[in-house]
């Protein structure tokens, strides 16, 4: 086995793959195979389908009301190639929402696997639990939880508009990296309607305890931003995050997410 470099111990300061040693110029066998495994996990996370039906059953067991919706996307390959179709609802889902007789909620709550089904399977339920509790504490009403496989962030604009919601929130699987294939993001948009731009959204990124942001921190931040958005009648770059405690980032790296 090729030895690691003497500075391998500096890895306690970073997840970066430093001090791997070398075989000639090349990466030694063991770190090379570790890289392959990490890439395989990220690839599987991207291509794994998400069973909305199964997720809905789990929500039903918790007595949370949910609604299965769809985009016109046919499969994961189609999803990756057609971001435009991931941003709209299939006609049948549009009809479903239009026929729905529920009072207009403060917040339309949407969940999608986005670019990582692994993320929503791993962290979706506990994050939803925290979000529902945080909204209940500040007396904000939420819609039935809209489950949409293979969606992009902007699908929440159409859903929010059809439900007459004051704001829309989408919990979505983020693009997997090698060190994290299970990260969730949340996007908040005030007065949702088709055509909103990314500059009009607030984003929470890297939700994946224990390495990333915790469920409760994300939920607290989301409830804070939602109250601010409803009070000030805006969201996005104009809504700055003045929340002091628990220094969580207010603006995730946008290119990482399913937009």
């Amino acid at each position: 086995m090729a030895p690691r470099d003497p500075w391998f111990e500096l890895r306690r300061y970073t997840q970066a793959r430093i001090g791997q040693g070398r075989a000639g110029c090349a990466t030694p066998t063991q770190p090379q195979l570790e890289f392959q495994l990490a890439h395989a996990m990220a690839r599987d996370a991207v291509h794994q389908a998400w069973s909305v039906e199964h997720f809905a059953q789990v929500l039903a067991a918790k007595t949370w009301q949910s609604l299965a919706l769809a985009t016109p996307i046919l499969n994961r390959r189609h999803y990756l190639q057609r971001p435009d179709l991931g941003r709209i609802l299939a006609p049948a889902s549009r009809d479903t929402l239009q026929a729905l007789e529920v009072p207009a909620p403060d917040v339309a709550l949407v969940v999608s696997n986005g670019l990582s089904s692994t993320a929503v399977e791993t962290h979706g339920l506990p994050l939803l639990a925290a979000v529902i509790e945080a909204y209940a504490e500040c007396a904000l009403s939420i819609s039935p939880i809209c489950l949409v496989a293979n969606a992009r962030v902007a699908v929440a604009d159409e859903i929010g508009a059809l439900l007459g919601a004051k704001a829309s929130v989408i919990i979505v699987g983020e693009r997997p990296g090698l060190s994290a294939a299970d990260s969730l993001g949340i996007y908040l948009t005030h007065a949702p309607q088709p055509g909103r731009t990314d500059a009009e959204r607030n984003c929470l990124s890297n939700i994946r305890p224990p390495a990333g942001m915790s469920y409760t921190a994300a939920a607290a931040k989301l409830a804070y931003l939602t109250r601010q958005a409803l009070q000030r009648q805006l969201s996005g770059v104009a809504l700055k995050d003045d929340m002091r405690e628990g220094a969580v980032p207010s603006d995730g790296e946008p290119m990482l997410n399913a937009r």
């Binding site: 970073t14 970066a16 430093i18 110029c25 990296g177 060190s179």
Partner: peptide, 23 residues
């Protein structure tokens, strides 16, 4: 390091890759 950018979540080329090309 190891071609794995742990901040931007993508893969590029490593220090080793440059040594390979030099060689």
């Amino acid at each position: 390091p190891g071609a794995d950018d742990v901040m931007l979540a993508y893969q590029s080329t490593s220090f080793h890759d440059a040594l390979y090309l030099r060689q």
